[in-house]
Each structure stands twice: as C-alpha cells, then as structure tokens.
C-alpha cells in the first residue's frame, strides 16, 4: 500500500542563530501507509506537538521533506498549504475548538466553506456526517448546549467534512472522562475500519496507543521505538468494508 505520509530527515529548530537555539526534532523519518491507524506517543517536551503541527502543515520544518498524498508540501506557498490543509487533513483537537456562536451543523460545514462547496451540498454532507457520529438530533444545538463527548463527536464530523486523506487527532480524549473517551475512540475505530481512513493519533496515554496498529514513541526529538499495537480488540489491519460517500 502506498504511503500517504512520508517524512524524511525532519529537523525543527527554534530561535535559529540565537544563543538559545533549540532543536526540537532531530531528523525524523516517518512513513504512514494509506489506511493505517498509527499513534505517536511521548512525554511532554518530546516534540510530538511540533511533529503534529508539521504533519498538519501548520508549521514548516527547518530541514527535511514532507510529502502528503504524493504532493511535496514544503515547496508550496502558504495559500496552497491552506488549501491542502483544508482538503487533505482533518484536525481533531483536545479542546474540541468548535466555534461558539455557530450550531453543530454550521461548525461541520465550516471546512467545506473554505473548500468552495456549494451551500446545498454543504448542508447535506454535514447532516450525513452528523448521522455517522450519531449527533443528527443535535445538529441545531450551539456548542455550549453540548457535553464534552458530544462536542468531540461534532469535531470529528467536522474533521471528516472534506473527506481528508488523514485525520490528525491531538489528545482527542484528553479533556473527556474515560467513558466518553471510550466512545470517541470507538468512533475513530469505526472511521478506520468502515471507511478506511488514515488516522494519526497523538497521545501520552499508552493504553489508547495500544489500540492502534502501530505505535511510534518519541523522546527528546528522536524516535526511540516503533512497534505494532494490539489493534482494536485485536483485529489488526481490518480491511475497509464500506466507502464513505
């Protein structure tokens, strides 16, 4: 299977040329094949947030190459990176980051707005996505009327809006209790198994990481371990059974 993400020799330095110059990533090589559910774990300060910003094209590495879905991203201008971000990557944040004065439906529509999807199609697709995360009955609710788990489900639906190549989840269960956290993880497994989504999960929780197919461990900017995870209930490399319409 082709690699959807290929990172080679990624180095990230801050305060370049100053006395307090800091190297956060020390030349990482990571390849993620299409359809893989991979986790990146590490203590705080290990560089995993920086790595996620680079994968999400919110930040550029100081050195190295990054190809996403066959596109060499680092040579692209910012405007193109914004578009690629909207189309190829779906973000799920620890703190949900829904926009407060818009209802769930409008929040899910947001990425499509920037992808120039016509209004009617936006509404239909948002409704469909909210059904997948079982939030269809809350489509017209404002974020402050939703519980943490419900907000995160809306956020996942939003991440799926433009049918991205990769879902990038940064501590998605970090702000949730274990029961709702479980629910959210189940949705990720569902997206992975039923729709064949490539998911990169960033976490410091080893138990959650264990559910994924592969675990990459970061420490002080270096990859210190790559091993296979147990997978979802032991079912590794489950083949996608249904294409996302």
């Amino acid at each position: 299977m082709a690699n959807i993400i290929e990172l080679h020799g990624i180095i990230k330095r801050y305060f370049i040329g100053k006395p307090n110059e800091l190297q956060v990533l020390n030349g990482l090589d990571i390849e993620v094949p299409e359809g893989e559910f991979v986790s990146i774990i590490g203590e705080s300060g290990s560089g995993k947030s920086t790595l996620m910003n680079i994968i999400g094209m919110l930040d550029r590495p100081t050195e190295g190459t990054y190809s996403l879905g066959g596109i060499d991203t680092l040579v692209q201008p910012d405007v193109v990176l914004s578009r690629l971000r909207g189309q190829k990557v779906g973000f799920v944040f620890q703190t949900f980051n829904l926009i407060g004065r818009m209802n769930a439906q409008k929040n899910v529509e947001m990425p499509m707005l920037y992808n120039h999807v016509p209004a009617k199609e936006r509404a239909e697709r948002a409704a469909h996505l909210l059904e997948i995360v079982e939030m269809a009955d809350r489509a017209k609710h404002q974020p402050n009327e939703l519980s943490g788990g419900q907000k995160q489900r809306v956020a996942i639906a939003r991440a799926m809006a433009n049918d991205p190549d990769v879902i990038l989840a940064d501590e998605p269960t970090g702000a949730l209790d274990s029961a709702t956290g479980r629910l959210v993880m189940d949705i990720f497994h569902d997206l992975h198994e039923r729709y064949g989504k490539t998911i990169v999960l960033i976490t410091h929780n080893p138990e959650l990481a264990e559910e994924t197919q592969r675990i990459i461990t970061l420490k002080d900017g270096d990859i210190v371990g790559v091993r296979a995870g147990a997978g979802h209930g032991g079912r590794q490399n489950a083949a996608p059974t249904e294409a996302l319409s």
Binding site: G56, L58, S82, R85, G86, F93, Y114, N115, R158, N162
Partner: peptide, 8 residues
C-alpha cells in the same frame, strides 16, 4: 481553528 480548517 479557521486556518487549521483551510482558511487562507
């Protein structure tokens, strides 16, 4: 958030 979701 908007920038993360693809806004230029």
């Amino acid at each position: 958030v908007r920038k993360a979701l693809g806004a230029t």
